[in-house]
Amino acid sequence: MKTETKTQMLEGAPWLLAHKSMLQRNKPYKISLYGKDYVIWKDSNGNIQALPNICPHMGAMLSEGWCEAKSDGTSEIVCPFHALKFDRDGCTILPGTDKKTLSQMQPLELMIKDDFIWSYGDYKPQIPIPDILDKIAQEYEFIGYTADTSVKTNLLSMLLNMHDYNHQNGTHRDLFEITEVRFEKFIDNGYHSEAFFNAPTAPKTLWEKLKQPKQFLLPDVIEAHLENYFPSLVIFHGDNYAGKLAQCHLFVPESLTNTRTYILLFAKLNNSLARLLKKQFLGLSKTVVEQDADILHKIYPNAPQKIKLNNEVGMDWVKRNFESWK
């Protein structure tokens, strides 16, 4: 089981658990990683804490409790069952005493890089945390996050879908209406790769766009530049009338059968109209994730692939990195 888990959930990879904007101050937030649940919270000082989500008394979910702020800006997580308070180290003070217990839970080790909350899930790091998001955050405006979704699919299936450059024709047909995928090149740098292709979309009348307003945000030809950081990140770099977009898709293996995905959107907006359309760009990104999640529910896992399409080089890149993971 240990070998299977390591291969399928890639133990030792860095996972972006959240952007700080996804956490409200002193409010519990549940995350799952490698088959374990954790509660994560941000105190009034902006510091992030993470503990196992199970109370060591009678097993209540700490994420269903609340945070109690202290005068120094720190806060404790409070169990919803018996109101036991646990500090960032997993220590508590039992009722009727004034003595702090030893740690009852092992805190999840986090790596905080600016607004990005990374973790190796307490496994030995196999590859470094990519620094591309730090660079994007310095150069682009952060628009927001969207589509934080737990999908009932394994990590490999999720990543194969995201690196399948033909699936827009089916999965995203009613959004993009792509008529052809013109693949240009794939650059393979080990755990980092880049894909370039363009995809003309079907002509649409003004009336058709009014019926589906998201179409106003799409160009006649989608010029795609995808930058991939195995296994947790795919960045769609796009240019349109609004400016430059960096749509960052994140992936987290919650368990052998569930994978979490969400999007962080960054942009260099070049006009006032584009700024008014921020929420629409987030809405478009959310639709993409919803359609991907929907199709993944309609796929038989581990089905043998008896035919191969053109331009599956991204999928081959994913398979190779999975197979060579140590």
Rank of each mutant, 00 (worst) to 15 (best):
I129H: 10
I129F: 11
P130V: 06
P130K: 11
D131H: 11
D131S: 14
I132N: 03
D134V: 11
D134C: 07
D134L: 15
Q138M: 01
E139V: 09
E139P: 02
E139A: 14
E139S: 15
Y140L: 06
Y140K: 03
E141H: 12
F142K: 07
F142Y: 14
F142P: 10
I143C: 04
G144F: 05
G144Y: 05
G144S: 06
Y145W: 09
T146W: 01
A147P: 10
A147G: 05
A147V: 03
D148E: 08
D148F: 00
D148C: 10
T149I: 14
S150K: 10
V151G: 03
K152V: 07
T153E: 01
T153F: 11
N154F: 00
N154P: 07
N154K: 05
L156H: 12
S157A: 14
S157W: 03
L160I: 10
L160N: 08
L160Q: 13
M162E: 05
H163M: 14
N166H: 08
N166L: 15
H167A: 11
H167P: 06
Q168A: 15
Q168Y: 10
T171G: 03
H172P: 12
R173M: 08
L175W: 01
F176N: 00
I178A: 15
I178S: 13
E180R: 12
E180I: 05
V181M: 14
V181S: 11
R182T: 08
R182I: 14
R182K: 13
E184T: 09
K185Q: 14
F186I: 01
F186N: 00
F186Q: 02
I187Y: 06
I187P: 06
D188P: 10
D188G: 02
N189S: 12
G190V: 02
G190Y: 00
S193I: 10
S193V: 07
S193P: 06
S193K: 07
S193Q: 10
S193Y: 12
S193H: 08
E194C: 07
E194M: 11
A195H: 04
F196R: 02
F197W: 11
F197Y: 15
A199E: 11
P200M: 05
P200N: 04
P200W: 01
P200I: 09
T201P: 04
A202I: 12
P203R: 12
P203L: 09
P203K: 11
P203E: 10
T205Y: 10
T205I: 07
T205F: 08
L206H: 14
L206K: 15
W207E: 13
E208M: 13
Q212T: 13
P213D: 06
Q215I: 01
Q215A: 11
Q215V: 03
F216E: 04
F216D: 04
L217Y: 07
L217W: 13
L217A: 08
L218K: 01
P219M: 07
P219I: 03
P219S: 08
P219D: 10
D220V: 02
I222Y: 05
I222F: 12
I222G: 00
